[in-house]
């Protein structure tokens, strides 16, 4: 899925194609297309292991670049912070462990490691681009966030962690700045969603 998404971007930019407007956005045709292209960049980040591992289909977070189910029977829990006795923060501290702790030690962030709450699961894994886009924008499913609140979430240390994931973990495919630029382009274009 990731690979085909990247192809899509490449094809568009290589051809300089400007297909007719067919978006649900409110911007003009040109910005709508740019918005779609930008969303593809956003999608590539959301559906990268660093982000989607905590946005799985079920209640078990994933781990590793290959997105395998988290060992230790880790569960989302009633508030997204894990289950009593095995909260995310039982192992994930306030920062990535120092390099001297070696590989595979659990990473951490100051705001606390966590998953989306059970009533706003925001599933990223295995969701088609259009559905992903609609879901992300939908306050009923994203924890009551409008576009401004969503943008603010991108500055949460838990999100920015993706670009400094520590020992041996692959960061998302584009830089954080490129991601934020793409987000802004998409948002300014009216946050159009692919069909």
């Amino acid at each position: 899925m990731k690979r085909s998404g990247i192809c899509f971007v490449l094809v568009l930019s290589a051809c300089g194609a400007k297909p007719a407007a067919s978006t649900s956005g409110t911007g003009g045709p040109a910005s709508g297309n740019q918005g779609l292209v930008a969303f593809e960049t956003v999608r590539g980040v959301l559906q990268h292991a660093r982000c989607q591992n905590c946005h799985p289909r079920g209640d078990t977070p994933l781990q590793g670049d290959d997105g395998r189910p988290h060992l230790q029977n880790v569960q989302r829990g009633p508030d997204g912070h894990g289950m009593v006795g095995e909260r995310c923060t039982t192992c994930h501290g306030p920062m990535n462990p120092p390099d001297s702790y070696g590989p595979h030690t659990p990473p951490g962030v100051t705001t606390g490691w966590r998953m989306p709450k059970p009533d706003q699961r925001l599933v990223f894994v295995g969701v088609a681009p259009g559905a992903l886009c609609e879901q992300v924008k939908d306050p009923a499913r994203n924890g009551g966030k409008d576009m401004a609140a969503l943008r603010a979430h991108l500055d949460d240390p838990l999100v920015t962690w993706a670009w400094s994931p520590g020992f041996g973990r692959t960061p998302p495919p584009v830089s954080r700045q490129a991601f934020l630029d793409a987000w802004t382009t998409w948002a300014n274009a009216g946050a159009p969603c692919p069909k």
Partner: peptide
């Protein structure tokens, strides 16, 4: 189930 979740670590 709670025990499975708490103690599997």
């Amino acid at each position: 189930t709670d025990i499975d979740a708490a103690l599997s670590g």
